[in-house]
Simulated assay, not measured.
Amino acid sequence: MAENTVQYGWDASMGIRLYDKIRQDMKTSMLKKDTAVRDTMRLIMGAFPEITVPITLESGKKSTRAKTPEEITDEDIQNIIRKFIKSEKTVLEIKKETSSAYLELLESYLPKMATAEEIEAWVKNNVDFSAVKSPVQAMGAVMKHFGKLADGNQVKAILQGMTPEK
């Protein structure tokens, strides 16, 4: 399947919504009889009804309804994919494996994560270690800057490895 993953995946620079790209890849995978990709796309699309928007009923009662395809944002779908990635990583950990074709396919639909070098460079340029007791206290600022593009455990490890300059 590794040779097929080049055509699958998504990037914001493609100029297409993630929702539309997943539907497009679903059709492509069905035509090519690529069952692994087809099943993954079905899994993601099957979670779309979980994306809801809060509403207030006429009685004043609070409720939710599923978002329409036009209302679903790239961020909504990325959160679903992150949830699947998290569960796959747990399974791989139990199996004592590091990666799978399924995991790589899911990751191809998320924005590229910040590298350790990018995080470290940003920390050196923007964090004043004299204002904090321990480097890990700067974690909030780092995570606020990188958001979901940085893994919290990776940031923590980088910060713990940095000694405050005194």
Rank of each mutant, 00 (worst) to 15 (best):
Ala138Trp: 05
Lys112Phe: 03
Ile119Val: 15
Ser100Tyr: 07
Asn125Tyr: 08
Met113Leu: 15
Lys133Trp: 09
Met139Glu: 15
Gln137Gly: 02
Met113Lys: 11
Gly140Ile: 08
Pro111Asn: 07
Ser130Phe: 15
Ala116Lys: 14
Val142Ile: 10
Tyr102Cys: 00
Ala138Val: 11
Asn125Arg: 13
Asn153Trp: 06
Lys124Thr: 08
Ala131Leu: 15
Asn125Gly: 07
Thr115Leu: 10
Gly140Thr: 10
Met113Arg: 08
Lys133Arg: 10
Pro111Cys: 10
Asp151Ala: 12
Ala141Glu: 14
Ser99Met: 08
Asp128Val: 09
Leu105Cys: 06
Phe146Ser: 07
Ala141Ser: 15
Trp122Ser: 04
Ala131Cys: 13
Glu118Val: 06
Ile119Asp: 00
Lys144His: 13
Thr98Leu: 09
Phe146Ala: 03
Leu149Asn: 14
Glu104Ala: 07
Ala114Gly: 01
Gly147Thr: 10
Ala138Ser: 14
Pro135Cys: 11
Glu118Asn: 03
Leu110Thr: 05
Val132Asn: 02
Ser130Glu: 13
Asn126Tyr: 10
Ser100Leu: 13
Leu106Ser: 02
Asn125Ser: 15
Glu118Arg: 01
Glu107Asn: 06
Asp128Met: 04
Ala141His: 04
Glu118Lys: 04
Thr98Pro: 00
Ala150Asn: 03
Ala114Arg: 01
Phe146Arg: 02
Gln154Asn: 02
Ser100Gln: 06
Leu105Ile: 12
Lys112Leu: 13
Ala116Cys: 11
Glu104Pro: 00
Ala150Phe: 12
Glu118Trp: 07
Met139Ala: 09
Leu149Thr: 15
Val136Gln: 04
Val136Pro: 00
Asn126Cys: 13
His145Val: 09
Thr115Met: 09
Phe146Thr: 05
Gln154Asp: 03
Val136Leu: 13
Gly147Tyr: 11
Met113Gln: 12
Leu149Lys: 13
Ser108Met: 10
Ala141Cys: 07
Glu107Thr: 07
Leu103Thr: 06
Asn126Ala: 09
